[in-house]
Computed example of a mutant assay.
Amino acid sequence: MSVKLPRIAVLLAAYNGMHWIEEQLASILAQTGVDLTVYISVDTSADGTQVWCEQYASDHASVIVLPPAGTFGGAARNFFRLVRDVELERFDFVAFADQDDIWHPDKLMRATSIIRNRHIDAYSSNVTAFWSNGSTHLLNKAQPQVEWDFLFEAAGPGCTYVMSKKVIEALKSSMRTNWQQLQSVSLHDWYCYAFARSHGFSWFIDPEPSMEYRQHERNQVGANKGLSSLISRYKTIHDGWWFSQVQLIAQLVGREADPFVRGWVGLRRAQLLRLSFSAWRCRRRRRDKVFFFCICWATALIGTKVR
């Protein structure tokens, strides 16, 4: 008797990806124990990515390239377009993919097995960052989830996300309703995690890395590692981007009226100071809890260019 394999739609957002996309697609198509279809949306590119992907799709029946839809200006809008435009009803799961990583052969089989065996709704995992000089670093995002982490951080890199049918159906419906506001969200992985958790869906963050996470100068968001990353994160907070995204995501996922959120969402000085004492409820990793506490105080005392 044949075993029914989980049907998975892999949504891949591409942009000027000719250096890496062939290797990435090969690792996706080499997945074991699943029945997958890859959908590619190409942001307007100058290196021939669209034409190359269309030719690749003509040679691979399980790869479909969406027609050009203009310039997105960032991966988030491209992923939102994929979720909105791809017919996902026949799939059991939906996974996100970047154009430049290398997936382990059992990535999707492990993710879907964990979702089914643990009776959860969505999955993400740790990754192994790697650089062209051969160095590697485990990016550990699998600390225990806390009450409000989803409003302040993602569940790890979006390219590890695998979501069940009921999560993606609810997400897609909400995205269509809030499409214009959604265009201002900069990070699709943060938003999708916030949506799932805020709507009562369970999420598992796997400590086992599921892929090699390529680091290069064109990464929109790369490995959060070292002092330079910490300084970069502080700059995004000081210029108002991070807190503006927190406010927007809280609104889009319907948590603005929650008493906890109402207590700080205006980002006034006293509110930020009060929020600092909830750091342990807002970030997963101990280092990030301390950083969160300090940032709340620094923003309250120095100010920020909240947009």
Rank of each mutant, 00 (worst) to 15 (best):
R84C: 08
Q143M: 03
V265C: 14
F195Q: 02
L139K: 03
D85E: 15
I102N: 06
R233Y: 10
V246S: 10
A13P: 04
A13N: 04
F79T: 05
D206W: 03
P207M: 06
A30D: 11
W179K: 00
S45F: 05
R255C: 14
E256T: 15
G134T: 01
T71C: 14
T177N: 02
C159G: 09
I249E: 01
I28L: 06
Q145F: 08
G158C: 07
G200V: 01
C296F: 07
V265G: 09
E89R: 14
S198F: 04
G17H: 04
W190C: 01
V127P: 00
Y56N: 05
M163G: 05
L272H: 13
S113E: 12
I102C: 01
G263W: 14
V253E: 00
Y39H: 06
D189C: 02
D100N: 15
L138Q: 07
P105F: 08
D239W: 12
V221I: 12
A300H: 07
C192G: 10
W179Q: 06
T160L: 00
Q50Y: 15
S173H: 06
I8H: 01
S2M: 08
D106K: 11
A250L: 09
L36P: 03
H238P: 04
P67D: 04
T37R: 05
A69S: 12
P68M: 13
Y213D: 03
A9W: 02
F260G: 13
Y56P: 10
H19I: 09
I295P: 12
R281H: 13
P105H: 09
D121S: 03
T160E: 00
N16W: 04
A300Q: 05
L187N: 11
I64P: 00
T112K: 06
L301T: 12
Q251Y: 13
H238Q: 13
H238A: 10
L230T: 13
L275N: 09
R176W: 10
T37G: 01
H137Y: 14
P144T: 02
N78V: 01
E212S: 05
P144L: 00
L252D: 01
K141C: 03
I302C: 15
F195D: 03
Y234M: 05
R269H: 11
S62A: 01
F260C: 11
H104Y: 13
W190F: 10
R77F: 07
P157A: 05
F72W: 04
L151D: 12
V146Q: 00
G263R: 14
W52I: 11
S58A: 13
A154V: 01
N117A: 01
K4V: 06
R116L: 12
I114E: 09
F277T: 15
Q31R: 00
D239M: 09
R274T: 14
L139G: 02
Y123D: 01
W264L: 14
L108W: 09
A223C: 04
R84G: 04
P259Y: 06
